[in-house]
Protein backbone atom coordinates (compact mmCIF):
# COMPACT_ATOMS: atom_id res chain seq x y z
CA UNK A 1 0.00 0.00 0.00
CA UNK A 2 2.96 2.26 -0.65
CA UNK A 3 1.08 4.05 -3.43
CA UNK A 4 -1.81 4.81 -1.12
CA UNK A 5 0.47 6.25 1.56
CA UNK A 6 2.26 8.42 -0.98
CA UNK A 7 -1.04 9.69 -2.29
CA UNK A 8 -2.45 10.45 1.16
CA UNK A 9 0.74 12.42 1.85
CA UNK A 10 0.24 14.39 -1.40
CA UNK A 11 -3.39 15.07 -0.51
CA UNK A 12 -2.61 16.27 2.99
CA UNK A 13 0.33 18.22 1.60
CA UNK A 14 -1.98 20.06 -0.77
CA UNK A 15 -4.38 20.93 2.03
CA UNK A 16 -1.42 22.23 4.05
CA UNK A 17 -0.29 24.25 1.03
CA UNK A 18 -3.72 25.81 0.67
CA UNK A 19 -3.73 26.85 4.34
CA UNK A 20 -0.05 27.64 4.89
CA UNK A 21 0.57 29.76 1.78
CA UNK A 22 -1.76 32.60 2.80
CA UNK A 23 -0.51 32.33 6.41
CA UNK A 24 3.12 32.52 5.27
CA UNK A 25 2.30 35.39 2.91
CA UNK A 26 0.74 37.27 5.79
CA UNK A 27 3.99 36.85 7.73
CA UNK A 28 5.96 38.18 4.77
CA UNK A 29 7.26 34.92 3.28
CA UNK A 30 6.27 35.16 -0.35
CA UNK A 31 8.28 32.47 -2.14
CA UNK A 32 5.04 30.61 -2.86
CA UNK A 33 1.93 32.71 -3.44
CA UNK A 34 -1.48 32.13 -4.90
CA UNK A 35 -4.21 29.54 -4.84
CA UNK A 36 -5.17 26.47 -6.82
CA UNK A 37 -6.46 28.80 -9.55
CA UNK A 38 -3.00 30.12 -10.09
CA UNK A 39 0.11 29.48 -8.07
CA UNK A 40 3.55 31.05 -8.16
CA UNK A 41 6.50 29.06 -6.85
CA UNK A 42 9.31 31.56 -7.00
CA UNK A 43 9.58 32.54 -10.66
CA UNK A 44 7.54 29.54 -11.85
CA UNK A 45 3.87 30.33 -12.49
CA UNK A 46 1.27 27.60 -12.71
CA UNK A 47 -2.34 28.22 -13.74
CA UNK A 48 -5.25 25.80 -14.01
CA UNK A 49 -5.60 25.13 -17.78
CA UNK A 50 -9.38 25.57 -17.75
CA UNK A 51 -9.02 28.95 -16.04
CA UNK A 52 -6.46 30.00 -18.65
CA UNK A 53 -8.64 28.98 -21.59
CA UNK A 54 -11.68 30.63 -20.03
CA UNK A 55 -9.75 33.91 -19.78
CA UNK A 56 -8.78 33.69 -23.45
CA UNK A 57 -12.50 33.30 -24.20
CA UNK A 58 -13.68 36.20 -22.03
CA UNK A 59 -10.96 38.63 -23.07
CA UNK A 60 -10.37 37.52 -26.69
CA UNK A 61 -6.70 38.17 -25.98
CA UNK A 62 -3.64 35.94 -25.73
CA UNK A 63 -1.64 36.93 -22.69
CA UNK A 64 1.82 35.35 -22.96
CA UNK A 65 2.39 35.17 -19.19
CA UNK A 66 -0.96 33.46 -18.68
CA UNK A 67 -0.42 30.98 -21.52
CA UNK A 68 3.08 30.09 -20.35
CA UNK A 69 1.74 29.35 -16.89
CA UNK A 70 -0.48 26.63 -18.38
CA UNK A 71 2.45 24.59 -19.67
CA UNK A 72 3.31 22.66 -16.49
CA UNK A 73 -0.22 21.41 -15.72
CA UNK A 74 -0.87 20.57 -19.38
CA UNK A 75 2.39 18.66 -19.61
CA UNK A 76 1.61 16.90 -16.31
CA UNK A 77 -1.82 15.87 -17.60
CA UNK A 78 -0.38 14.58 -20.88
CA UNK A 79 2.26 12.58 -19.00
CA UNK A 80 0.47 11.30 -15.90
CA UNK A 81 -3.24 11.87 -16.57
CA UNK A 82 -5.49 13.67 -14.13
CA UNK A 83 -3.15 13.23 -11.18
CA UNK A 84 -4.04 16.74 -10.04
CA UNK A 85 -7.55 15.44 -9.32
CA UNK A 86 -6.53 12.15 -7.77
CA UNK A 87 -3.47 13.25 -5.83
CA UNK A 88 -3.95 16.94 -5.03
CA UNK A 89 -7.41 18.40 -5.46
CA UNK A 90 -8.80 19.21 -1.99
CA UNK A 91 -12.37 18.72 -3.23
CA UNK A 92 -11.52 15.16 -4.25
CA UNK A 93 -9.90 14.63 -0.87
CA UNK A 94 -12.96 15.93 0.97
CA UNK A 95 -15.34 13.91 -1.21
CA UNK A 96 -13.23 10.79 -0.85
CA UNK A 97 -13.01 11.01 2.92
CA UNK A 98 -16.72 11.79 3.21
CA UNK A 99 -17.39 8.79 0.97
CA UNK A 100 -15.46 6.55 3.35
CA UNK A 101 -17.50 7.87 6.27
CA UNK A 102 -20.69 7.21 4.29
CA UNK A 103 -19.51 3.66 3.58
CA UNK A 104 -18.79 3.07 7.29
CA UNK A 105 -22.25 4.35 8.17
CA UNK A 106 -23.77 2.14 5.49
CA UNK A 107 -25.46 5.03 3.66
CA UNK A 108 -27.35 4.04 0.52
CA UNK A 109 -27.71 6.86 -2.01
CA UNK A 110 -31.07 7.74 -3.46
CA UNK A 111 -29.73 7.52 -7.02
CA UNK A 112 -27.15 5.00 -8.12
CA UNK A 113 -26.23 5.67 -11.75
CA UNK A 114 -23.32 4.02 -13.54
CA UNK A 115 -20.52 6.63 -13.76
CA UNK A 116 -20.27 8.01 -17.32
CA UNK A 117 -18.14 10.76 -18.79
CA UNK A 118 -20.88 12.34 -20.91
CA UNK A 119 -22.60 14.53 -18.27
CA UNK A 120 -19.31 16.09 -17.24
CA UNK A 121 -18.38 16.75 -20.86
CA UNK A 122 -21.75 18.46 -21.39
CA UNK A 123 -21.21 20.64 -18.28
CA UNK A 124 -17.74 21.60 -19.54
CA UNK A 125 -19.07 22.44 -23.02
CA UNK A 126 -21.88 24.51 -21.48
CA UNK A 127 -19.46 26.43 -19.26
CA UNK A 128 -17.05 27.16 -22.10
CA UNK A 129 -19.89 28.21 -24.43
CA UNK A 130 -21.54 30.46 -21.87
CA UNK A 131 -18.30 32.08 -20.65
CA UNK A 132 -17.71 34.47 -23.60
CA UNK A 133 -21.44 35.26 -23.70
CA UNK A 134 -21.73 36.33 -20.07
CA UNK A 135 -18.32 38.02 -20.15
CA UNK A 136 -17.09 36.89 -16.77
CA UNK A 137 -15.13 33.81 -15.74
CA UNK A 138 -17.81 31.20 -15.04
CA UNK A 139 -15.26 28.40 -14.68
CA UNK A 140 -13.56 30.28 -11.85
CA UNK A 141 -16.84 30.35 -9.94
CA UNK A 142 -17.30 26.60 -10.54
CA UNK A 143 -13.78 25.47 -9.69
CA UNK A 144 -14.12 23.68 -6.36
CA UNK A 145 -10.35 23.45 -5.67
CA UNK A 146 -9.96 27.12 -6.58
CA UNK A 147 -12.86 28.14 -4.34
CA UNK A 148 -11.51 26.12 -1.43
CA UNK A 149 -8.06 27.67 -1.60
CA UNK A 150 -9.25 31.21 -2.37
CA UNK A 151 -11.65 31.01 0.56
CA UNK A 152 -8.83 29.77 2.80
CA UNK A 153 -6.91 32.87 1.73
CA UNK A 154 -9.93 35.08 2.39
CA UNK A 155 -10.28 33.58 5.85
CA UNK A 156 -6.64 34.32 6.68
CA UNK A 157 -6.92 37.95 5.56
CA UNK A 158 -10.45 38.80 6.65
CA UNK A 159 -11.40 36.21 9.24
CA UNK A 160 -14.56 35.31 7.32
CA UNK A 161 -15.45 33.16 4.34
CA UNK A 162 -17.88 34.03 1.56
CA UNK A 163 -21.28 32.47 1.03
CA UNK A 164 -19.84 30.74 -2.07
CA UNK A 165 -17.95 28.37 0.24
CA UNK A 166 -21.38 26.81 0.73
CA UNK A 167 -20.92 25.12 -2.66
CA UNK A 168 -18.42 22.79 -1.02
CA UNK A 169 -20.89 21.89 1.74
CA UNK A 170 -23.61 21.39 -0.85
CA UNK A 171 -21.39 18.98 -2.79
CA UNK A 172 -20.70 16.96 0.34
CA UNK A 173 -24.39 16.72 1.26
CA UNK A 174 -25.45 15.77 -2.28
CA UNK A 175 -22.74 13.12 -2.47
CA UNK A 176 -23.65 11.78 0.95
CA UNK A 177 -27.33 11.27 0.28
CA UNK A 178 -28.15 11.57 -3.43
CA UNK A 179 -25.39 10.50 -5.83
CA UNK A 180 -22.07 8.99 -4.85
CA UNK A 181 -19.12 11.19 -5.97
CA UNK A 182 -21.52 13.40 -7.97
CA UNK A 183 -19.13 16.35 -8.37
CA UNK A 184 -15.98 14.62 -9.63
CA UNK A 185 -17.78 12.03 -11.74
CA UNK A 186 -20.57 14.07 -13.32
CA UNK A 187 -20.07 17.81 -12.91
CA UNK A 188 -16.60 19.19 -12.28
CA UNK A 189 -15.49 21.34 -15.25
CA UNK A 190 -11.89 21.44 -14.01
CA UNK A 191 -11.58 17.66 -14.09
CA UNK A 192 -13.55 17.48 -17.32
CA UNK A 193 -11.07 19.79 -18.99
CA UNK A 194 -7.99 18.02 -17.62
CA UNK A 195 -9.47 14.79 -18.98
CA UNK A 196 -9.11 16.13 -22.52
CA UNK A 197 -5.31 16.01 -22.32
CA UNK A 198 -4.83 12.35 -23.16
CA UNK A 199 -2.40 10.72 -25.51
CA UNK A 200 -1.68 7.07 -26.25
CA UNK A 201 1.33 7.18 -23.95
CA UNK A 202 -0.37 8.93 -21.02
CA UNK A 203 -0.08 6.98 -17.77
CA UNK A 204 -3.00 4.62 -17.35
CA UNK A 205 -4.25 1.73 -15.29
CA UNK A 206 -3.99 -1.42 -17.38
CA UNK A 207 -5.67 -4.73 -16.69
CA UNK A 208 -3.59 -7.34 -18.48
CA UNK A 209 -3.56 -11.06 -17.83
CA UNK A 210 -0.83 -13.33 -19.05
CA UNK A 211 0.83 -16.56 -17.84
CA UNK A 212 2.26 -14.85 -14.75
CA UNK A 213 -0.49 -12.37 -14.07
CA UNK A 214 -3.80 -14.07 -13.63
CA UNK A 215 -6.72 -12.28 -12.07
CA UNK A 216 -8.03 -14.10 -9.03
CA UNK A 217 -11.44 -12.38 -9.45
CA UNK A 218 -11.21 -11.13 -5.88
CA UNK A 219 -12.65 -7.77 -6.98
CA UNK A 220 -10.63 -5.96 -4.31
CA UNK A 221 -9.82 -3.33 -6.96
CA UNK A 222 -13.48 -2.64 -7.63
CA UNK A 223 -14.10 -2.11 -3.92
CA UNK A 224 -11.00 0.06 -3.67
CA UNK A 225 -12.00 2.54 -6.38
CA UNK A 226 -13.12 5.71 -4.65
CA UNK A 227 -14.99 6.83 -7.76
CA UNK A 228 -17.02 3.65 -8.11
CA UNK A 229 -15.35 2.63 -11.38
CA UNK A 230 -14.62 -0.94 -12.47
CA UNK A 231 -10.92 -1.42 -13.21
CA UNK A 232 -11.63 -4.90 -14.58
CA UNK A 233 -14.16 -3.67 -17.11
CA UNK A 234 -11.82 -1.38 -19.06
CA UNK A 235 -13.07 1.99 -20.35
CA UNK A 236 -11.77 3.75 -17.28
CA UNK A 237 -10.91 7.03 -19.00
CA UNK A 238 -11.50 9.93 -18.80
CA UNK A 239 -13.20 9.31 -15.43
CA UNK A 240 -10.24 7.56 -13.79
CA UNK A 241 -7.86 10.07 -12.22
CA UNK A 242 -4.96 7.67 -11.72
CA UNK A 243 -5.16 7.66 -7.94
CA UNK A 244 -3.71 4.15 -8.03
CA UNK A 245 -5.83 2.67 -5.23
CA UNK A 246 -6.85 -0.28 -7.44
CA UNK A 247 -3.24 -0.92 -8.50
CA UNK A 248 -2.19 -0.66 -4.87
CA UNK A 249 -4.60 -3.30 -3.55
CA UNK A 250 -3.82 -5.57 -6.50
CA UNK A 251 -0.09 -5.34 -5.89
CA UNK A 252 -0.60 -6.05 -2.20
CA UNK A 253 -2.15 -9.44 -2.89
CA UNK A 254 -0.02 -12.23 -1.55
CA UNK A 255 -0.85 -14.93 -4.11
CA UNK A 256 0.16 -14.89 -7.77
CA UNK A 257 -1.80 -12.64 -9.98
CA UNK A 258 -1.54 -8.89 -9.80
CA UNK A 259 -2.89 -8.21 -13.28
CA UNK A 260 -3.45 -4.48 -12.62
CA UNK A 261 -0.61 -2.05 -13.19
CA UNK A 262 0.22 1.50 -14.20
CA UNK A 263 1.65 1.78 -17.71
CA UNK A 264 2.52 4.53 -20.13
Amino acid sequence: MRLKRLRTAAQIGTICLVILVPLANKKGFTFITGTLYSLAVGPVWITDPLIGVQTVLTTARLDAVLLLSLLIPVFLAFALGRVFCGWMCPQNTISEWADRVAAKLGITRLFRPQPRALPRTIVLAAVLTATPLVGFPLASLLSAPGLISAQAGKYVVEGVVGLEAGLIGLIVVVEFFLVRRAWCNYLCPVGGFLGLFRLKGTLKVVFAEDAEHVCGKCRACVDACGLGLDPLGGNLYPLCHNCGDCVGVCEALKERGKPLSFRF
Binding site: K26, G34, Y37, S38, S140, V157
Partner: peptide, 23 residues
Protein backbone atom coordinates in the same frame (compact mmCIF):
# COMPACT_ATOMS: atom_id res chain seq x y z
CA UNK B 1 -13.73 39.57 -17.71
CA UNK B 2 -9.99 39.22 -17.14
CA UNK B 3 -9.65 38.67 -13.39
CA UNK B 4 -9.64 34.93 -12.68
CA UNK B 5 -10.52 35.44 -8.98
CA UNK B 6 -7.32 33.67 -7.93
CA UNK B 7 -6.60 35.83 -4.89
CA UNK B 8 -2.90 36.29 -5.58
CA UNK B 9 -3.10 40.07 -5.20
CA UNK B 10 -4.94 39.61 -1.90
CA UNK B 11 -2.04 37.52 -0.65
CA UNK B 12 0.57 39.86 -2.08
CA UNK B 13 -0.82 42.85 -0.17
CA UNK B 14 1.31 43.29 2.96
CA UNK B 15 -1.27 45.58 4.55
CA UNK B 16 -4.33 43.36 4.28
CA UNK B 17 -5.89 46.17 2.27
CA UNK B 18 -7.17 44.02 -0.58
CA UNK B 19 -10.28 42.08 0.37
CA UNK B 20 -12.24 39.53 -1.63
CA UNK B 21 -15.78 40.28 -2.80
CA UNK B 22 -18.18 37.49 -1.88
CA UNK B 23 -21.26 35.98 -3.48
Amino acid sequence: ATCIRCGKCVQACPYGTIKTASL
